[in-house]
Amino acid sequence: MQEQTTTQWGADGALEVLTFDLQEETFALEAIMVREILDLLPETIVPGAPSLVGSVVNFRGKIIPIADLRLAFGMPAAEATVDSRIVVIELETESEALQLGIRTDKVHEVATLMRDNSEPAPAVGLRWRRDYVRELVRTQDGVIVLPDLATIFRTFLGAGDAAALSTVH
């Protein structure tokens, strides 16, 4: 089994994140990874690409792969809505800084999560692959999922780059 990425909580036990929805669930990415939040752009399907990153967009003259985390979490595809956005993140790998867009149903806000409210994904009762979830964080509004992007994108990035990604968070 692959080792999961660890969350890099601040010295005060806090973590600044951008929260967003996929279906009925709230997810979060470290705010430091986020480069831009975009309205949906025309996507070009890439024949033969894995469905998780099956399309690209032209963003300011640069081709950026678009990931649909719904597929990683076994959620059904959804039609875009007025609230749908693309969150452009930057991942540091062994070989390069990679920009990647993540399609979301709705982006919420930058929030501060606290380590004291977090716990690892349970061994049972989780409908997703446990290794795709770094931690679950309780908030007054419910539970926020911190996805393990290194594990999710391992196939897309290649094992070496995904392993390097694990050390950057």
Score class of each variant (00 low, 15 high):
Thr81Ala: 08
Arg129Pro: 06
Leu146Ile: 09
Leu18Met: 15
Ile89Leu: 02
Gly160Gln: 06
Arg127His: 11
Leu52Met: 06
Arg85His: 01
Val110Pro: 00
Gln2Phe: 08
Asp131Val: 07
Phe153Asp: 01
Thr44Asp: 10
Glu79Gln: 09
Leu146Ser: 00
Val56Leu: 08
Val87Leu: 00
Pro50Ser: 02
Asp68Glu: 11
Glu16Met: 15
Glu94Met: 00
Ile37Val: 15
Asp105Cys: 01
Ala123Val: 13
Pro50Gly: 03
Asp39Lys: 14
Pro50Lys: 03
Glu36Ser: 10
Arg138Tyr: 09
Phe59Asp: 10
Gln23Cys: 11
Arg130Val: 09
Leu126His: 08
Pro42Glu: 08
Arg127Ser: 13
Leu165Asp: 01
Met114Asn: 15
Thr44Ile: 12
Leu146Gln: 04
Phe20Trp: 14
Glu16Asn: 15
Glu135Thr: 13
Phe73Asn: 07
Pro120Arg: 09
Ile63Asn: 09
Ile37Asn: 04
Ala80Ser: 10
Leu41Ser: 06
Ala121Lys: 11
Val17Arg: 06
Gln4Pro: 13
Glu24Tyr: 05
Arg70Asp: 00
Glu109Cys: 07
Ser95Val: 08
Val168Gly: 04
Glu135Asp: 13
Trp128Lys: 10
Ala111Trp: 00
Ile45Met: 08
Ser55Leu: 05
Met1Glu: 07
Leu100Phe: 02
Val34Asp: 02
Phe73Cys: 04
Asn58Tyr: 05
Gly10Ser: 15
Leu40Glu: 11
Val124Leu: 13
Trp128Leu: 09
Leu157His: 00
Val107Trp: 02
Thr112Leu: 02
Glu94Ile: 01
Tyr132Val: 07
Val110Thr: 06
Leu29His: 05
Gln23Ile: 07
Leu41Gln: 11
Leu40Val: 13
Gly61Arg: 10
Pro120Ser: 12
Thr81His: 04
Ala121His: 09
Met1Ile: 07
Ala80Arg: 01
Glu30Lys: 13
Gly125Glu: 12
Ile144Arg: 04
Ala14Asp: 14
Ser166Tyr: 01
Ala11Phe: 14
Gly101Arg: 01
Ala11Asn: 15
Ala80Phe: 02
Leu146His: 02
Asp141Phe: 07
Arg129Ile: 01
Ile32Gln: 06
Pro65Lys: 00
Glu79Val: 02
Ala163Lys: 06
Ile45Asp: 11
Leu15Ser: 14
Gly54Asp: 03
Ser55Glu: 05
Ile45Cys: 09
Leu113Ser: 09
Phe153Leu: 15
Asn58Glu: 04
Glu24His: 13
Glu25Val: 09
Gly101Cys: 02
Val107Cys: 06
Val57Glu: 14
Pro122Arg: 00
Phe20Glu: 13
Thr5Leu: 12
Ile102Lys: 04
Leu113Ile: 14
Arg35Asp: 13
Val46Gly: 06
Leu100Glu: 01
Leu15Asn: 14
Thr93Asp: 02
Glu3Thr: 12
Val17Gly: 03
Gln4Trp: 06
Gly160Trp: 00
Val133Tyr: 04
Phe20Ala: 12
Val34Cys: 03
Gly13Trp: 12
Phe156Gly: 00
Val107Gln: 05
Leu126Ile: 12
Ala31Asn: 07
Val87Glu: 00
Glu43Tyr: 03
Ala11Gln: 14
Glu25Ile: 11
